[in-house]
Design a protein around this nucleic acid. Structure first.
Length: 389
DNA sequence: TCGCTTGGAGATCCACAAGC
DNA sequence: GCTTGTGGATCTCCAAGCGA
């Protein structure tokens, strides 16, 4: 009998499912912000009026937004992830300062475009924004920064400002939905994966019977699992990859899946500092977008592998692993200083074991054991016996 | 023509140095 | 001390160049 067909196979996932009651995930005192079109337009107008007021009274205009580059502004809540503190350090963008003049002008320009987009109910990507006036913006990074700073300043998520990011995430498995344009998509029979829609908040009729979501760090691993027919064999699963550091749309979709279906989510990343960081961004959110963690972070995400303890457990030859560099060591000490360490049982132990072994292991290392080891041995074994932290 | 390598662009993240 | 710019990390995709 196929082990997957046995009822006890899914028992570990059932335990994980029931270990996260819905009421724990959404504390009543932190309601999600509901913003109407009028609210958004009003907030933009208020900032513009302030700027105009300062100019008419002879002052040099300024705008203030939360400093998104310091950990001092970040707090941590177990059920939400990273969050902005109540009294954060602010960054002042001064029109008169030679360092800030360009930044000030960019923010005004981008805000005026956002106002028109919201007013006319149209959406555009950051890339579209840049190409509206490439000479003025100079480069894509300047637009990206302006959009995020405005979003942070107004305390309005980017999608409410009608600016979307270009999706890079892929989906496969037991999931179907209707996108914002009304197109119906099923991820079941895909050969190379279905793109995560750019307008995740426009998704409707989201349907799935999946028992778990497997978040995969690398596209190469995602494609290998599709080639091996992993999603067809397991049927009740969803495979997701954001191809490296996750983009906002992929994180939004995962949060949507968690909020709606409470499906256990397991991350398959490299056993290296960057893999761990990528897993932690899915789980707790990022520093720069901490003000949107309530929409993006899924604290119930579990680290399935590759765990440094797997190196010993599966008899992986340490000589075939890559030695950790001084850069890796810096990243590890950075991870060990993060505020969520005490809330993530087992994480510190795994990181310290990596330091002890002095090696890191990529997911592909499992291919050295056998070409089908990942899909036929490693993942089924982990799912059956609960080898995640 | 095909396959491989290389470089640039684009998406995300971060830390650190320099300048005001 | 604050702000900005630079550079480095993960990944993919695409085009160009090169050799078989």
């Amino acid at each position: 009998m196929d082990p997957i067909a046995r009822p006890e196979f899914w028992s570990c996932l059932d335990k994980l499912y029931h270990s996260f009651p819905i009421e724990n995930d959404k504390p009543a005192n932190i309601p999600k912000r509901i913003l109407s079109k009028a609210d958004v337009l009003q907030k933009i107008q208020t900032v513009m009026n302030d700027v105009m007021g300062q100019m008419s009274s002879g002052e040099s205009p300024t705008m203030k937004h939360i400093n998104r580059s310091t950990w001092e502004n970040i707090s941590f809540k177990e059920n939400i992830g990273l969050q902005m503190v109540n009294d954060p350090k602010m960054t002042t963008v001064r029109y008169e300062s030679p360092q800030s003049t360009k930044k000030f002008a960019l923010m005004i320009k981008v805000m005026s475009i956002m106002f028109t987009l919201v007013q006319t109910d149209k959406y555009c990507t950051k890339r579209d924004l840049f190409y509206q006036d490439p000479t003025f913006f100079g480069n894509q990074m300047a637009v990206d920064e302006a959009v995020d700073n405005i979003s942070c300043m107004l305390q309005i998520p980017r999608w409410h400002l009608h600016v979307l990011g270009t999706s890079k995430g892929l989906l496969a498995g037991d999931l179907s939905f209707q996108d914002a344009d009304g197109n119906f998509t099923s991820c079941n029979s895909t050969k190379n994966g279905v793109m995560v829609p750019s307008h995740v908040m426009g998704i409707s009729f989201l349907q799935t019977n999946a028992k778990f979501v497997l978040i995969i760090e690398k596209d190469a691993t995602f494609q290998k699992l599709l080639d091996d027919g992993f999603h067809l064999k397991f049927k009740q699963c969803i495979l997701v990859t954001a191809k490296g550091f996750p983009d906002m749309n992929t994180r939004l979709l995962l949060k949507l899946l968690w909020d709606k279906f409470h499906i256990p989510m397991l991350a398959l990343v490299d056993a290296d500092p960057h893999g761990i960081e990528i897993m932690l961004i899915y789980k707790y959110g990022s520093k720069a977008l901490a003000f949107e963690s309530e929409y993006l972070a899924v604290p119930s995400v579990r680290w399935l592998g590759i765990l440094p303890t797997d190196i010993k457990r599966f008899g992986i030859d340490v000589d075939k692993c890559i030695s950790i560099t001084s850069g890796d060591k810096n990243k590890i000490s950075d991870l060990l200083s993060r505020p969520f360490l005490s809330s993530f049982p087992g994480l510190e132990k795994e990181i310290k074991l990596m330091l002890e072994l002095k090696v890191k292991a990529e997911i592909q290392i499992l291919d050295s054991l056998s070409p089908m080891f990942l899909s036929s041995v490693y993942l089924p074994g982990k799912l059956q016996y609960g080898g995640w932290i």
